[in-house]
Design a protein around this nucleic acid. Structure first.
Lengths: 200, 200
DNA sequence: GTACGCACGTGATTCC
DNA sequence: GGAATCACGTGCGTAC
């Protein structure tokens, strides 16, 4: 891009048509300055924009705009497929869970009332995370659970607490991932567990 | 953006500085046309670019450029996190279990119908049975679940149904054993599963 | 009515 | 020297 460093004030005498009116008689020079400012702003935007486009050598205005358009289209396109992939993988992970995740241990169930709680389980479908927790009845505990969940870039959209037996609580939570949620389920469960153990 | 449809040919007489040379003496008018073409090209690029930016009301050049820059930055940023998510998303979505309490029963999942819902889980505490079911959204299905449960000498005392993702339903049931209930959990789940598959 | 934005024609500059 | 690009000052339309 050509950069004109010195602004040359040229003297020009312009003969206008008879029907052409002298519209800006007084503040003529202010208009010049305003226009200068406007151009400068646009020019700077061009520079900023060109900086965002990878692999751009030609810095002329047409190329910047053209390549910006092209690049933007590519990005949007890739975004769509990527988002789809993420959604699809989540579905697949659910299927995987279905196959391997079915297990009941009858023998050990009688000894559950010691310190092995809370028991946490999580799974994903689309943008939702399903969290199931089994814990001892304990006042204030539900509050802590929700609090811990919302710390993890998840917004709770459903909760359900059921009494189960004499001293057990079944907590079910559905939470929606926020944009910056990026945790594996394993880490999610781990983090949750550690967070909850502290406040037991 | 303002579109000037008619190009007005103005007659201008310009007095130049002494050292300013008349560079384009002959092909002066071709220059005008070429410049016109260039401007038109840029202008069209502006229109195309503005069309790609969602939620753009102001169509002036500065706004288009500014918002394009902003939008592009947002896209690139989101791209990075999304790509990371895709890379990081492993197949594992595991339920965290204490080894003392559960063990993975690899052999037994063969008897389930290998790929489809519903996924059923059951456990006992005192006289209560907790039943968790994950199934596809399906009208009338919840009714069947409860019906099947009550056939097994269990009286439902709590139910909860939560939407999970686009097409999944999380059903939690707490039922109390009646006097003549005498089933292993394994059989309970098996029976429930077979009963539900019939009415799918 | 004035402040803003645009396209215009034009000289200058750069690159082949 | 010709082709392409730029910034400039300016007139015109328009929306506040």
């Amino acid at each position: 891009m050509i950069e004109t460093t010195s602004v040359v004030e040229r003297t020009m005498v312009v003969t206008k048509r008879a029907d052409s009116l002298t519209r800006t008689p007084l503040h003529a020079h202010e208009h010049v300055i305003a226009e200068r400012k406007r151009r400068e702003k646009i020019s700077r935007s061009f520079s900023s924009l060109s900086a965002l486009i990878p692999g751009l050598n030609k810095k002329d205005k047409s190329s910047v705009l053209g390549d910006a358009i092209e690049y933007l289209k590519k990005l949007q396109e890739r975004m769509a497929t990527l988002e789809e992939q993420v959604a699809k993988r989540r579905v697949e992970s659910v299927k995987f869970v279905k196959k391997t995740q079915f297990h009941i241990d009858e023998e050990n169930f009688d000894f559950q009332s010691n310190n092995s709680f809370p028991e946490i389980e999580a799974r994903v479908s689309d943008k939702d995370v399903l969290i199931r927790i089994l814990c001892e009845t304990n006042k204030g505990y539900v509050l802590n659970i929700i609090n811990e969940v919302e710390k993890l870039h998840l917004s709770v959209i459903h909760t359900n607490v059921l009494p189960f037996g004499q001293s057990t609580l079944d907590v079910t939570i559905v939470a929606r991932m926020e944009a910056d949620f990026s945790m594996t389920l394993k880490d999610l469960v781990k983090t949750l567990q550690q967070g909850l153990l502290k406040v037991m």
